[in-house]
């Protein structure tokens, strides 16, 4: 198990941390994001998009309503939000199809029963702006 910890002092630092994670990402990886409302999950994905070379990474937006947004950089980035989704519906999203040429990042990952490998990213609210971000690879 490999664990990395980062401290972010605000949204722009969360982007930078996301960028580092994105630069190391490889096609086929599934990332599960865990963190309460307003912890910065979408901000982290914005940074990850920059890291994998998505041109308009600045416009990576919350997928809460769309449920899934797909971006194209050096590889695909499938950004999923299970906030509004019932767990039995997750299979309808056919996430495996996106892993062939890219990564899948899931917000509110606690709602999936995904059984494959998952890189776990915990975002902990440690202050009004400060967050502790922990990346765990099994």
């Amino acid at each position: 198990m490999e664990k990395r910890e980062f401290i972010s002092k605000g949204p722009s630092e969360t982007w930078e941390i996301g960028e580092l994670i994105g630069k190391k990402a490889k096609p086929g990886e599934m990332y599960g994001l865990y963190g309460e409302l307003g912890s910065g999950k979408t901000q982290l994905v914005k940074g990850m998009a920059k890291g994998i070379g998505v041109k308009d990474w600045f416009y990576v937006t919350s997928p809460t309503f769309a449920i899934m947004n797909v971006y194209e950089g050096k590889m695909g980035l499938c950004h999923v939000d299970l906030y509004r989704v019932q767990s039995q519906e997750v299979e309808d999203l056919d996430l495996e199809a996106f892993l062939k040429d890219g990564i899948v990042v899931i917000e509110w990952a606690e709602r999936t029963d995904w059984e494959g490998d998952m890189i776990r990213v915990d975002i902990e609210v440690t202050g009004e702006e400060e967050r502790k971000i922990t990346v765990t690879r099994l």
Partner: peptide
């Protein structure tokens, strides 16, 4: 222009749910 993160309606919904 467009939103860079949450849509306005999403902000309403998330706060009411919270």
């Amino acid at each position: 222009g467009t939103t860079r993160d949450d849509a306005a309606g999403e902000a309403f919904d998330k706060i009411s749910k919270y």
